[in-house]
Amino acid sequence: MEKELLEREVKEIADSWKGKEGNLIMVLHQIQNRYGYVPREVSLVLSEILDVPLARIYEVITFYHFFRLTPPGKHTISVCMGTACYLKGGAELMTELEHLLCVKPGETTKDGQFHLEMVRCLGCCGLAPVLKIGEKIYGGVKKKDIGDIIAHYSEEAEAQVTE
């Protein structure tokens, strides 16, 4: 993005919180809502606008798991590791996904299609083990199902749908 445009956008967000104590975290929330993550250039601009050291901004971003430093994948796969899902094989699903996608939890695939993350309880323990892709919940998932589920979201599959 052009620096000028970026500065204008970031300034707009920062200005709405100007002078309010603890504004950094609120600004970062809005930044992430806007861009899906907190781009490095945005941190640099924010540091100037809010007069907060860059290292301080980076402290907040890296302290809270909520904030992201890299663009999110197109599809976020959340694997539940709550007690019920864990006992029913959540960890096995995670391992399979890591294997298939070649990423660790918290990472995004190179093609930007999938972001893998671990969550604690999605509130549907009766369906354990559970994983969520985007807003869709998959319950009672077995290791062998994973390949098919993923295939459904892969780029080629989507391309076919559009054709």
């Binding site: 050291p53 860059l54 290292a55 301080r56 402290e59 302290f63």
Partner: peptide, 23 residues
């Protein structure tokens, strides 16, 4: 940060992975 007003060093990451240093 407080005496020198520079703020070059802050904790980064959390828990066991914490490192003190620049952004």
């Amino acid at each position: 940060a407080e005496v020198q007003g520079v703020g070059a060093l802050f904790p980064q990451n959390r828990g066991y992975k914490t490192m003190i240093g620049p952004a």
